[in-house]
């Protein structure tokens, strides 16, 4: 009994994923369970995965970044505007990354220096960024005079496989490795586990908080630029919708880890669950409000599971 409970905790989420796939395969065998559809799903979730990895980093130090959505929107807008104004394309993607790095660093600096709640700090930052977006665009979508090459990243395919899916995979591998096998990753988890112990152990806690927030902002920005590149225009609120689902994915991901902590692979699983649900429910012609209800319920369930999985630690 105890063993069953344990393995349910460890593999329950993966089991849920398998069941979801199974159910949709039975209900829509011809359309759902095909290579083509899975390639399609991988592209659909690719953007969410990248932004969710950012959220994973910040959550690994036990903080929140509520500005991921508006950071993504700003990333798209900045990069599109630069392209419109004739900057060389590589710069249109590099400069916003640098700017987002600074913004994220400021987030982390405020949180670490003044010991304020990251929740509120980044909520404030999110509002500031929305204001900046409005100042840049006047509230209108940027779509005129965008050079053709701008859309390459978001639409190119290698054979049948979208470049976006490949980029996503690269980020998963890179950050999966960083969190597991590097000094940086281990120190982030240490801070998330116990900040005071980390301090006594000689870890420069403020520095690593800055790094986590900065990387999160960069990944959000990249997501936003890829959204803009994919649709060939930059909507002023394109990234906002990603905020909630990215945290949902991280929480679901926590349940995949035995320690109940945020982890990149788990986040990928979380995104897959949410993405496949959307894909399958749409195929079943489920109305959007039902999709919302089901997705929301799964998020709540995942948070409860994450709490249970953590057990009595500290």
């Amino acid at each position: 009994m105890k063993n069953m409970k344990k393995s349910l905790q460890a593999y329950g989420t993966l089991l849920a994923l398998a069941i979801i796939i199974l159910v949709f395969s039975i209900l829509r065998p011809a359309a759902f369970f095909t290579v083509r559809n899975f390639i399609n799903i991988s592209r659909q979730i690719s953007l969410m995965v990248i932004i969710s990895i950012g959220a994973t980093l910040v959550m690994s130090i036990n903080e929140f970044d509520l500005s991921v959505g508006s950071m993504a929107s700003l990333g798209g807008v900045m990069s599109a505007l630069m392209a419109v104004n004739g900057l060389p394309l590589p710069l249109c993607f590099l400069l916003p990354i640098l700017i987002s790095l600074v913004i994220g660093w400021i987030n982390g600096w405020i949180v670490a220096k003044f010991k304020v709640l990251s929740f509120i700090t980044t909520l404030g930052m999110s509002t500031v960024l929305s204001g900046v977006i409005y100042r840049l665009t006047g509230g209108a979508t940027v779509f005129q005079n965008i050079p053709k090459g701008f859309s390459w990243l978001g639409t190119f395919k290698i054979g049948e496989i979208p470049l976006l899916s490949v980029i996503m995979l690269a980020f998963v591998v890179l950050f999966g490795f960083i969190m597991r096998h590097t000094v940086l990753g281990r120190r982030l988890y240490a801070i998330g586990g116990n900040e005071e112990t980390s301090k006594v152990a000689g870890i420069n806690v403020p520095l690593y908080k800055n790094i986590a927030f900065a990387l999160c902002a960069v990944l959000s920005c990249i997501t936003g630029m890829l959204i803009a590149s994919r649709v060939g225009s930059a909507n002023t609120t394109a990234g906002d919708g990603y905020f909630l689902s990215s945290y949902a994915a991280v929480f679901i991901g926590c349940t995949v880890s035995k320690k109940g902590i945020p982890n990149v692979l788990g986040t990928l699983v979380g995104c897959a669950i949410l993405g496949i649900l959307t894909n399958g429910l749409t195929m079943l012609q489920m109305p959007t409000y039902m999709q919302d209800i089901i997705t929301g319920a799964i998020i709540i369930f995942a948070v409860i599971m994450q709490k249970l999985g953590k057990g009595n630690a500290n």
């Binding site: 988890y189 240490a190 112990t197 980390s198």
Partner: peptide, 23 residues
């Protein structure tokens, strides 16, 4: 204050022991 300042309860023994000397 062992739990508050010396250990990270949720991490493995290995990760705790290596905490100060990862470099």
């Amino acid at each position: 204050d062992r739990r508050g300042k010396a250990l990270i309860g949720n991490l493995a023994i290995r990760e705790n022991v290596a905490l100060s000397c990862l470099g």
